[in-house]
């Protein structure tokens, strides 16, 4: 039941993506941060949200699990559907949305607890039984590619880990509650090349089971790990398509300028 395979999965094959974003707009006062964004994010795929700093990438993925509502100043229009179900429906509680659509932030946010307790954080919220917690934590640490490094000292403080390990622990923590979609907001921007490489390897594995949406302003990273790219500029989607198509044969001038580094 909570293993992440949703019953309607089989039915929704093909074009209708796992997450459907339609006419999404976000504004702060009179200023539009996102304007009429329509996107389809398929299952078992890494989708990269690419674009220059300040173009609304963070705001966009925060819309996908209603984190955006934590900023009271922002007004949101349009719809986001997970398997056809509108996430912004009044009947839907954001806390439940976030248990199926997990999120990892720019900087690692490990809590001042042991590695194990960090990974178990989301499970403890629902008082899952100990065996289940043990199994889920192990599974999540493996999927996040951290198990081999930490399985001997799960009781050590998570703060003792390196930045890259901490970020993978955050991924494990998000995975432990078995989300259907994982959102990553520039997860490597605070990491060194080695840490970045490990995260990228982890992300490539994750898509075997779930959908991943990763924000990056790094064209190389998008090329290395994503299957699809959506290029954002000034709050709008400029173009979207398979990664090689977008990065090698962009149709739009803005996209080409960005990926060739001639961006102004």
């Amino acid at each position: 039941m909570i293993d992440g395979s949703l019953p309607s999965d089989a039915a929704s094959s093909g074009p209708p993506g796992l997450l459907e974003v339609e006419h999404l707009g976000v504004s702060a006062g009179s200023r539009k941060i996102l304007d009429d964004v329509t996107l389809s994010l398929p299952d078992r795929t890494v989708s990269a949200v690419l674009g220059p700093s300040g173009c609304g990438k963070t705001t966009f993925i925060r819309c996908l699990n209603r984190m955006v509502e934590l900023s009271p100043a922002l007004k949101i229009v349009g719809s986001v559907r997970l398997l056809g179900r509108d996430l912004y429906d009044r009947e839907v509680d954001p806390a439940l949305v976030r248990r199926r659509i997990g999120m990892v932030f720019q900087r690692p946010t490990v809590f001042p607890q042991s590695i194990f307790e960090n990974a178990a954080f989301g499970l403890r919220l629902v008082h899952a039984d100990e065996d289940e917690v043990d199994r889920s934590v192990m599974d999540a640490l493996k999927r996040a590619g951290l198990w081999d490094e930490v399985h001997d000292d799960l009781d050590r403080s998570a703060l003792a880990l390196s930045g890259g390990q901490q970020q993978r622990l955050c991924i494990a923590r998000a995975l432990a509650v078995k989300p259907r979609v994982l959102l990553l907001d520039e997860p490597t921007s605070s990491l060194d090349p080695h840490g970045t490489q490990r995260i990228e390897a982890t992300v490539r594995h994750l898509k075997e089971e779930i959908a991943v949406v990763i924000v990056t302003h790094n064209v190389g990273q998008a090329a290395r790990i994503s299957d699809r790219v959506a290029f954002f500029h000034a709050g709008r989607v400029v173009e979207v398509g398979a990664t090689p198509d977008i990065l090698e044969r962009p149709r739009e001038a803005l996209t080409e300028q960005f990926i060739t580094g001639r961006f102004t």
Binding site: M67, L70, A95, F105, T109, F121, G122, L125, A174, V177
Partner: peptide, 8 residues
Amino acid sequence: EAGLALGA
């Protein structure tokens, strides 16, 4: 936010 993102 990390907590809220885990459904807390």
